[in-house]
Design a protein around this nucleic acid. Structure first.
Lengths: 274, 274
DNA sequence: TTGGTATCTTTAGGGCATAAAGAGATCCGA
DNA sequence: TCGGATCTCTTTATGCCCTAAAGATACCAA
């Protein structure tokens, strides 16, 4: 069940996101009634911490409240509901993404972007589980995209090419990290380590359909290795993903490079292009 | 809240997936008790139909039961729980993916793969919302991966290159389609059309932070167009995604192509190859 | 001091998955 | 033919979720 960001009242969410200070609900000075013991920020921080620990599925208002020594309902003073809280969590956490990258060479810059984005998503696993349809349009999201756009502009791409490239990069990195995160969470919630689970399935398959692998020869080819898989400590799937992350990224960067060199030779020969 | 496939008992799920017939729970011949009026397949079919309509979030045992004129609990006769049902739904629906592609030219073959995969995910939006950590290892999943592996093998990639390329392709297509699906679902569940929502946000932004766009110049560059955006009927975000889907794919294919031509020139100059 | 307001808790209602127990149907063996 | 035995399906109940609404309490201003 995907979680949707951007379901809060647009107007309200955006004011909360952009106004920074002057956050409306918690009381203005000179107002009767008890001072609020918490703040929107405190709630958002707690929610982020909870989500980091237990994931999106288990994130609940009760858990966030508990972390603040409050009931679930107490949060509704600061936040309209879970949807708005997610909007705020999402943009808040995007503020951790770097907004500038090495200027000397687009390949290094994109590699740095990919690495930083990857690390970010590993730090906040729940972010990649959140839908990006109808993004919140918060300041941090803008800044993050701006940084990536800058790298692509300086690389020499045209805007339409960059528009096509952004999703390729973003989806690749998010997808890679999602796989790792989900494997970790599965291990945590089921108590079954990745490798253990994998072995069990493989053994079961061997027994239940011993001859089926003959029917998928290209699959066998895909899994064939010249060298045995490298030594590893961590979980199996993470190792696999790690092994291929940079290689996969290299394929994408090669594609961008091909685009750029085509540009250069076009200019040289004065011909049209693809 | 991501939904996890592969949470059923591995042994049981796999037997259900691979045994085809001889499905254990529904009664064997010569057994007392009423004949089951339904079957595992009927339950899975109904669940797929429900998921296609309402998405993963709203998929519930009650809804599936209702579609079969039963209570939610009746399903537990055929299926161990929601987790196992998801395993079965997932592999069942993967059977719709084509398992062979044009043999003449890897570019066409991959484009065909991408198009088929995209169409598939648009037909069954819930599939891309389902976690692929700990895949079910059902027959149809194997066959689908085998087909893609075959295309890459015939293209001339080495196994390790293909292993790096598969996730790039899969994640790109799934990500692209996920964006469209989520936009559609958001439109359906909130009753707010995509374009309408987008305009509201843009207007709010204009008003709340009129000068912020100056802080993200590369973002403005990214959105700049030589030609005005093309006429479109459908929702805004879908149009954008459609516009860039093939361009993004082209970047990836260029990357693969670069790998292959590097191979050729290596061979020509006397270096090793596969 | 008193009224009004804001925070926070309690209670309650409508979801959800599913454990456990009951109702009914159906077949086997006696 | 007639009990079990056994299976399907429903009912009931538990415990989670979000959140509306109402109550309790704390605080400020007049």
């Amino acid at each position: 069940m995907a979680v949707f960001v951007g379901q809060g009242d647009p107007r309200r969410s955006m004011e909360l996101l952009w106004r920074g200070t002057a956050r409306p609900p918690a009381s203005r000075p000179g107002t009767p009634g008890p001072k609020p013991a918490l703040s929107v920020d405190a709630v958002v921080d707690a929610a982020v911490a909870v989500a980091d620990e237990v994931g999106t599925v288990a994130l609940s208002m009760r858990l966030v409240g508990e972390r603040l020594g409050r009931t679930a309902m107490a949060l509704y003073t600061y936040v309209q509901g879970k949807a708005e809280l997610l909007d705020l969590m999402y943009d808040q956490v995007l503020g951790e993404l770097p907004v500038s990258f090495p200027q000397d060479g687009w390949r290094d810059a994109l590699a740095a972007w990919a690495e930083a984005t990857r690390a970010f998503h590993l730090r906040h696993p729940w972010v990649s589980q959140v839908s990006q349809a109808r993004p919140v349009l918060g300041p941090n999201e803008y800044l993050a995209y701006n940084a990536l756009a800058g790298v692509l502009r300086r690389a020499g791409l045209r805007p339409d090419e960059a528009r096509a490239t952004v999703p390729v990069l973003v989806r690749y990195v998010e997808g890679a990290v999602r796989a790792v995160n989900e494997a970790r969470q599965a291990a945590r919630t089921t108590g079954v380590a990745d490798e253990e689970w994998w072995n069990a399935r493989a053994a079961a398959l061997e027994e239940i359909a011993p001859d089926f692998l003959d029917a998928v020869p290209d699959m066998a080819w895909l899994e064939s290795r010249d060298a045995p898989p490298p030594e590893h400590d961590g979980p199996y799937l993470e190792m696999l993903v790690d092994e291929s992350f940079h290689q996969g990224l290299a394929v994408i960067l090669d594609g961008i490079g091909a685009r750029l060199t085509a540009r250069v030779s076009d200019a040289r020969s004065g011909a049209a292009d693809q």
